[in-house]
Every structure is written in C-alpha cells, then in structure tokens.
C-alpha cells in the first residue's frame, strides 16, 4: 500500500503542481480553497430548500410545464449510487386518463384490503371484529412495516375516498428500480428521489412521495401498459404539482434524534 499517498502528501502535491504551473507562466488551479462557514451562519439555498420542503398533498389544478419536469429529473440523474450503477429509470405520467386508471386500481386494492383486514369497521365485542383482528394481527407481526398502524389508517382513508393515492397531482413520476443494482438498489432509488424532490422544491413545485405506488405492481397488465419492463420494477412514485397555499413560508419543528459522537477517544451522546 506504499504507493497510496497519505493526505498530507496529497496536499503537498497540490501545492507543488500549482507552484510549477506558476513558474511556467500557466494559470492552473489544482487546489480548491477551503471556505468554512461561520458558526450560526444563515441557511444557504440548498439548506433553505431542505428546511422548507413539505410533503404536498393538495395541488392546484394547473399542469406543470414539461421542461420543469425534465429539469428536476435531470437533477436525479446526478444522484450518487452504489458502484455508480444508477439502477433507476422513470415513467412520467401527465395523461389524466392514465393517472385516473392508476388511482382507480390502487383504490380498488385498498377497498379490498379494508374489507378483509380492517377490524375497526366492526363494533367492539362483535364476533367479526375478533376474527378479523386475529388475522390482521398475524399479518401485523409478520410484516410490521407494511402493516404499521399509520398506513392502515391511510388505507382506510383511501378506501372510503377521504384522500386520493396520487393526491390528484397533474404529474406523477414513477421511479423504476433495476433489480440487478449493486448492493441495495432500494437506497439508490431513495437518493435519486430526494434529488428530484429537493430540486422541485427549489423551483417552486410541491411533491409528495407515494409509497402506495407499490400497489400498482400487483397488476401486471397495468404495469405493462405503463411501459415498465423487467428487470425494472416500480419502486416509488412522486406526485408533482403547484402547492395550495404557501407551505414554504416557514420551516417547521421536528423531533431530534440521537447522535453518538466519537472524538478524541471519548464518546458523547448528542441530540
């Protein structure tokens, strides 16, 4: 490993290269200046976009110009991925009939699910409730993520028409994942989506991740119609449109999370 220079040698190398260039009368900048920001400095544009991004579920009716969708997708293209394998592609749906078809199918699945697993439809003490609860709690235990109480409440709301799966957005971006991706392609899909969502926020668009888009995968005919071919599968969707109101006027309050901080041989717990 002797041929791998340590970071001190590399810094020297930068200096030598610049000095040599200056001597030869060439303008060459091989060093990047270090600009640490001052403690407590104001948010920069990227930080501001992160802090004011909200998941938008109520959109204005007007369509987003096509070039703006292309623009935010372009930001996705430059997301980091494991081994730079870029295990993604996209389906952009701006066709009202197609979005309606996707919506209809997801609602049907949710209706079916509430009918078979939502015991809250039956009064306490009833036999039906007890039977369904036993089945559901078994599912709950086997799939604690999918059958978490939060999506259960959402499934119920979708089934009874209280909210739309794709939130009636004018544009829906389906993120497809190449199953053959390096390592954990699901993570890469999350990263590409975050790029898209933050880019959208920075140009005044509202977005919402639609985890229920997974339901589409259980309809092979619709998947094919959408243009999804193996080895790609629908991993996630992002609804895009203009938000109602001004949800970016102020940053919100959120929980803090534990940070274990190792430094100078000591461990600290921060929040």
């Amino acid at each position: 490993m002797d041929d791998i220079a340590n970071s001190h040698d590399l810094e020297e190398l930068e200096c030598e290269l610049d000095a040599a260039a200056a001597k030869a009368g060439r303008k060459a900048r091989r060093r990047t200046a270090i600009h640490d920001i001052e403690p407590g400095a104001d948010w920069n544009d990227v930080e501001h976009a992160i802090l004011t991004r909200r998941s938008i579920r109520k959109f204005k009716g007007r369509q987003v110009p096509a070039h703006m969708i292309r623009r935010i997708l372009e930001m996705g293209r430059f997301a980091p991925s494991q081994g730079n394998c870029q295990p993604w592609s996209f389906v952009v749906v701006r066709d009202k009939a197609m979005i309606a078809e996707m919506e209809q199918y997801c609602v049907a699945v949710c209706k079916n699910m509430t009918a078979t697993i939502d015991y809250t439809n039956y009064p306490a003490g009833s036999e039906q409730r007890a039977v369904i609860m036993a089945n559901t709690q078994k599912l709950n235990r086997e799939n604690p993520n999918s059958f978490h109480p939060v999506p259960m409440t959402a499934i119920k709301s979708i089934a009874n028409g209280r909210f739309a799966v794709f939130h009636r957005a004018p544009t829906v971006i389906l993120i497809l994942m190449d199953k053959r991706g390096v390592g954990v392609p699901e993570v890469d899909v999350g990263v590409v989506g975050t790029n898209i969502v933050l880019a959208a926020q920075s140009v005044g668009l509202g977005t919402c991740w639609i985890g229920f888009s997974k339901l589409l995968s259980s309809n092979p005919a619709l998947v094919e119609k959408l243009g999804v071919q193996p080895p790609f599968e629908i991993a996630e969707a992002i609804s895009v449109g203009y938000p109602i109101g001004n949800p970016t006027q102020q940053a919100i309050s959120r929980q803090t999370h534990q940070i274990v901080w190792w430094e100078d041989g000591k461990k600290e717990i921060l929040y």
Binding site: P39, G40, A41, D42, W43, L51, P144, H148, P149, A251, I252, S253, R254, Q255, T256, H257, Q258, Y271
Partner: peptide
C-alpha cells in the same frame, strides 16, 4: 407496537 427510542423533543431548525 414499538417503543420510541433514541428520539427527543420537537425543535425548530438550529443553526
């Protein structure tokens, strides 16, 4: 279902 762990109170963005 599960216990909230390694999580603390709500706070606005800190600089």
């Amino acid at each position: 279902f599960y216990e909230q762990k390694q999580i603390s109170e709500f706070m606005f963005p800190r600089k």
